[in-house]
């Protein structure tokens, strides 16, 4: 019992449940309209390269033409059609972001679990676990851009390098979340109860600790997704992303920078909007899912 006003909300929810009020099922709670932007995005990703008007990697016309009937979103300083690049880039940006989200979350869960379960052991295993935990903490302090630049410079610019690099940058975030959660769950009473029921330590970790500890990391996926889209574009902006002229929103913005300084807004704005749209779309879809699942 706390005097905290916040704790009362839980009690009210309990009262509501206890008084027999039923809550509508998952699918009814799901707000379908919120899925629309993400659906649009997925469609673009799927059919993107087929709905281009011009070849996204070939010069389509004179540079820096304003948006009009011929070029729906104008052309960038090098003469490439902005619209075509935009839709073609959707697939790659989405794919990279999705792979990164999955990779970083999966490795974060595994690593976080291993660290958290072994941290308090004496001996070499415990020492190693603590060492890795510290390293993960510090790894987060190294600027993401720097890590991306370093890895790309070492291993060359390709989609694979990008995926691995960004996943490596973001995995510590998930690892830390999972580790903290594992440490919390370890002291929960139901683990002792499971031991009393004869469950072995390994089964304990897999059946009880893992599902509970992984939840915050899974809840964080929307954030990871958003950040990875931005990071991909940032590296592309710096010229350390995919090899040109692969269409990519970040490098589009880089090309559009010179135009923007002289008042030609289109070659930088549309990719920027595309970035924002992707992040918001996935965020909306994810929150809709989580609200419904609660």
């Amino acid at each position: 019992m706390t005097g905290s006003v916040g704790a009362r909300a839980d009690k009210i929810a309990w009262v509501a449940r206890a008084s027999g009020r039923s809550t509508p099922g998952f699918w009814r709670r799901f707000r379908w309209p919120r899925l629309a932007p993400a659906a649009l995005l997925l469609v673009m990703g799927a059919i993107g390269p087929s709905i281009v008007r011009y070849n996204p990697v070939r010069i389509a016309g004179p540079g820096s033409i304003a948006p009009g009937a011929e070029f729906w979103m104008g052309t960038d300083p090098t003469g490439l059609d902005v619209y075509s690049q935009l839709v073609a880039a959707t697939r790659l940006n989405l794919a990279i972001a999705t792979l990164v989200a999955l990779l970083s979350t999966a490795s974060g869960i595994v690593l976080g679990l291993l660290i958290g379960m072994n941290e308090s052991r004496t001996g070499p295993i415990g020492l190693a676990a603590r060492g890795i935990a510290r390293f993960v903490d510090f790894a987060q302090a190294v600027p993401a851009i720097v890590v991306g630049l370093v890895l790309v410079s070492f291993f060359g610019a390709s989609a694979t390098t990008l995926v691995v690099a960004i996943a490596a940058i973001l995995a510590p975030i998930q690892t830390r979340i999972v580790r903290v959660e594992v440490l919390r769950v370890r002291s929960e009473a139901f683990l002792d109860a499971a031991r009393m029921a004869g469950t072995g330590e390994f089964a304990l970790a897999l059946q009880h600790v893992l599902p509970n500890a992984a939840r915050p990391a899974v809840a964080n996926i929307a954030f990871i997704f958003g950040v990875s889209i931005i990071l991909t574009a940032a590296l592309g902006f710096l010229g350390a992303g995919l090899p040109p002229p692969t269409p990519e929103w970040g490098s589009m913005i880089a090309r559009g920078a010179t135009d923007a300084a002289v008042g030609r807004w289109w070659s930088a704005s549309f990719p920027f909007l595309a970035l924002i749209f992707s992040v918001v779309a996935m965020s909306l879809a994810f929150t809709a899912w989580r609200r419904a699942a609660r």
């Binding site: 009362r8 009210i12 509501a16």
Partner: peptide
């Protein structure tokens, strides 16, 4: 009480 008028819970 807490909650919206049509669904309020009185403490």
């Amino acid at each position: 009480s807490y909650g919206p008028p049509e669904n309020s819970v009185a403490a």
